[in-house]
Amino acid sequence: MQLITKDYCMEMTRYNAWQNVQIQAAMQTLGEEGAAADRGGFFGSILGTANHLLWADRIWMHRLADWPDPKGTPKSSTTLCPTVAVWGSERFHTDGLLREWAGRLNNLDLAGELEWTSTDGTRTSRMPRGRVLTHMFNHQTHHRGQIHAMLTAAGCAAPVSDLILMPR
C-alpha cells in the first residue's frame, strides 16, 4: 500500500509556498538586521533558518528529481541568500518548481527506494521514497515552527500556520 500520493505532495508544496510568502512578509517587517540577528535558533537567525530550509529543499530535490546540486552542507546553508529580498526571490522560484514537480508526479515516481550520499560524502543512505518525501515536508514544517517562534519572540505578528486554515 502506498501512503504518499501525488495529491499529498501537491497539497504539501502548496502549503509550503503559502507559509513562505507569510514568512517573507514577517521578515520584511523586521528589516535586514532584524532578520539576520542571532535569535538562538538552531541555525541562529530567522534568515539563517529560512536559508537552511531553501537549501534543504534544493538538496532533496537534487536527490529526488535531478535538480542542480545546491552544494554546501547544512552548516553552510545559513548563508545561501544574503538578504531577505534575495531569499524571497529564490524561495518563490523554488516553490514554483516544487509545485510543478508535484503536479507531474505519478505512482512510479513515488515507489521504490532512493539512495543518496550525505553532503559531506561520508555515508550512503537508502530508504523508501515515500519516507524521504514525508521527511522533506516534515522538515519544512519543523523549521518553519522555529521561525514562527523566533518571529513571535521578536514581536512580529507570526504567520498563520495551521494547514486546515490554508486558503483554498
Results as ranks from 00 to 15, higher is better:
Arg58Gly: 06
Ile59Ala: 08
Trp60Asn: 00
Met61Gln: 01
Met61Thr: 13
Met61Phe: 10
His62Pro: 05
His62Glu: 15
His62Tyr: 15
His62Phe: 11
Arg63Lys: 06
Leu64Phe: 10
Leu64Cys: 04
Ala65Gly: 08
Asp66Lys: 14
Trp67Lys: 04
Pro68Glu: 03
Pro68Cys: 05
Asp69Met: 10
Asp69Tyr: 11
Pro70Ser: 06
Pro70Cys: 14
Pro70Val: 03
Gly72Glu: 13
Gly72Leu: 09
Thr73Lys: 03
Pro74Ile: 05
Lys75Asn: 13
Lys75Pro: 06
Lys75Ala: 15
Ser76Ala: 14
Thr78Leu: 02
Thr78Val: 15
Leu80Lys: 03
Leu80Ile: 07
Cys81Lys: 07
Cys81Glu: 04
Cys81Ser: 13
Cys81Val: 08
Pro82Trp: 10
Thr83Lys: 09
Thr83Cys: 03
Val84His: 06
Val84Cys: 01
Ala85Asp: 14
Ala85Pro: 13
Val86Gly: 12
Gly88Met: 09
Glu90Asp: 09
Glu90Thr: 05
Arg91Pro: 06
Phe92Met: 15
Phe92Trp: 14
Phe92Val: 08
His93Arg: 15
His93Ser: 15
Thr94Leu: 08
Thr94Ser: 12
Asp95Arg: 08
Asp95Lys: 04
Asp95Met: 09
Gly96Pro: 03
Gly96Arg: 05
Gly96Asp: 10
Leu98Tyr: 13
Leu98Arg: 07
Arg99Ile: 01
Arg99Lys: 12
Trp101Thr: 00
Trp101Gln: 02
Ala102Phe: 02
Ala102Gly: 02
Ala102Tyr: 00
Arg104Met: 09
Leu105Glu: 09
Leu105Val: 07
Asn106Glu: 11
Asn106Leu: 05
Asn106Ala: 14
Asn106Trp: 00
Asn106Thr: 09
Asn107Tyr: 14
Leu108Phe: 07
Ala111Trp: 00
Ala111Thr: 07
Ala111Gly: 01
Ala111Arg: 10
Gly112Leu: 02
Gly112Phe: 02
Gly112Ser: 12
Gly112Ala: 07
Glu115Gly: 13
Glu115Thr: 04
Glu115Phe: 08
Trp116Gln: 00
Trp116Phe: 12
Trp116Pro: 05
Ser118Pro: 14
Thr119Val: 15
Thr119Lys: 11
Thr119Pro: 10
Asp120His: 02
Gly121Leu: 01
Gly121Phe: 00
Arg123Ile: 02
Arg123Glu: 14
Thr124Lys: 06
Ser125Val: 12
Arg126Pro: 00
Pro128Ile: 01
Pro128Ser: 13
Arg129Gln: 04
Arg129Cys: 04
Arg129Asp: 00
Arg129Leu: 03
Gly130Pro: 00
Arg131Tyr: 00
Arg131Ala: 05
Val132His: 00
Val132Pro: 01
Leu133Arg: 03
Leu133Asp: 02
Thr134Arg: 13
His135Phe: 08
His135Arg: 01
Met136Ile: 13
Met136Glu: 06
Met136Cys: 12
Phe137Pro: 10
Phe137Ser: 06
Phe137Cys: 02
Thr141Pro: 05
Thr141Asp: 01
His142Gly: 04
His142Lys: 01
His143Ile: 11
Arg144Cys: 08
Arg144Ser: 08
Gly145Ile: 07
Gln146Glu: 14
Gln146Arg: 12
Met150Ser: 05
